[in-house]
Design a protein around this nucleic acid. Structure first.
Lengths: 246, 246
DNA sequence: GTCAACGAAAGCGTATACAATGGGGTCAGA
DNA sequence: TCTGACCCCATTGTATACGCTTTCGTTGAC
């Protein structure tokens, strides 16, 4: 749609003073958004990491204006924190936030299971199985980053299958934030979802048993949450910020 | 709200080349955000209304940069639609979106009632009663705009009382979008919530009866939804966008 | 008379420039 | 040596300028 089929006349006299990337439109911005978002979700950017606008604009070759737009979007999704004069950094969720997020997932994801079981098709089941398999493979090879992202993608896709785009969007947000929570409070040993859980969940959905899928999802989420060690570690670098300010 | 009361100190030596509003920080932006958001929620800006950046920057006295930031935020909350080269306009929800929003409200707001009933205090009850009363008063006087906003505020406050900030935020989003849905699909006679419903809801919460509050909230939302006449009226200005593109 | 094509204007997208604030480093004094 | 204050630099906040796309109006031709 945005591709120029007609060769632009573009007065040949004008030397390209711009870095000649005007044609892309906002495709570029979306790509950058996803690049940063993925890096955060995959824990390649850890909570607390600073995201300087200059550095990002250098890396991606767009000016700070575009970077700021992306950063604001990430901030609204609460995976980046925008401190007024200090710039952006990867959000470090508090224990309260972690509890809220998992409670919200309990309510929404479990509540969605019934609709998913009703509407799911054979192709959907294949897709979910494939995602679960790729997640397992990634885990086996040791690619934790990929596994984390695939795990979140599984939950997101599941929510989409409910047919409710709004709630699916909420779930996507919650999954992103969950990834951050795992980065902060998760023990490094396992990273949240056991992929066998995902397989079993698909099995229940295939059987059309929404009720069982719901209870299983509830247990699944509880398992993840209880595997976290949610203790506001105020040890090194006592984080006086959280104690007094905020 | 939008009037600048305090003349900025604006170092006397420097000739005010800027329009001397540097002191405020981003308080100003938040005020503008709320001004636009309120105008939309109160139906003073109707769905489909165009929001030109130049005009807004003139009205509020900030440059287009700040306006764009605010518009993006509103777009992410889905009460403003950002068409790539056409600018911003107040979102006109589709019938599908309307259904999604009300289904989501059913799930989340009803699911929250139990926690609210458990945690609510006497002061909270007084506050809710006051809000319900002000809503009724506004309706009686004929101030529909105020009534609409108060109704949304009631639901938002209720969600906040659950203690889950994340879900409360979701509810706030859903209420904003609901206001848009009412603007498009609501019959002009009544505007969604009957304020007596809110009073009865508070009564159940006061009694600590979360179960009954939950079922009542469910019926309350169903009443609102069924009062809508959700028919994609493709009459005037046939909205060819939705038919072909998108 | 109608349709199409060209031109001008308006409005959005992006970059860059400038100002202000906060932090860190250094120097001085106790 | 430690503490406090001051200054400079790094980094963000905001505005403005410029180019491009889109749209609307006008004119010409069929």
């Amino acid at each position: 749609m945005t591709e120029r089929q007609s060769q632009p006349v573009s007065s040949p006299s004008s030397p390209q003073r711009r870095r000649g990337k005007n044609g892309d439109g906002d495709k570029r911005h979306d790509a950058i958004y996803r690049a940063i978002s993925d890096a955060i979700i995959e824990h390649r950017l850890k909570p607390g990491a600073r995201l300087r606008e200059d550095a990002l604009s250098d890396v991606f070759g767009v000016s700070r204006t575009g970077i700021r737009k992306i950063l604001q979007r990430l901030a609204l999704e609460q995976i980046v924190t925008l401190t007024p004069r200090r710039g952006a950094s990867v959000t470090r969720p508090t224990a309260d936030e972690a509890k809220d997020v998992f409670d919200a997932r309990q309510m929404i994801e479990c509540g969605l299971m019934e609709a998913v079981a009703r509407r799911i098709t054979a192709a959907d089941i294949d897709e979910l199985r494939d995602m679960a398999k790729r997640e397992r493979d990634a885990l086996r090879v040791g690619e934790q980053s990929t596994a984390i992202k695939l795990s979140a993608a599984f939950h997101e896709r599941l929510a989409q299958l409910s047919g409710n785009a709004t709630l699916a969007d909420f779930v996507a947000r919650l999954c992103s934030r969950s990834s951050l929570i795992l980065a902060v409070y998760g023990s490094s040993g396992h990273l949240g979802c056991e992929s066998h859980d995902h397989d079993e969940l698909v099995r229940h959905l295939e059987a059309g048993d929404g009720e069982r899928a719901k209870t299983f999802m509830s247990r699944h989420l509880k398992t993840i949450e209880s595997s976290l060690s949610i203790v506001e570690e105020e040890d090194q670098t006592p984080d006086l910020y959280r104690i007094f300010a905020e």
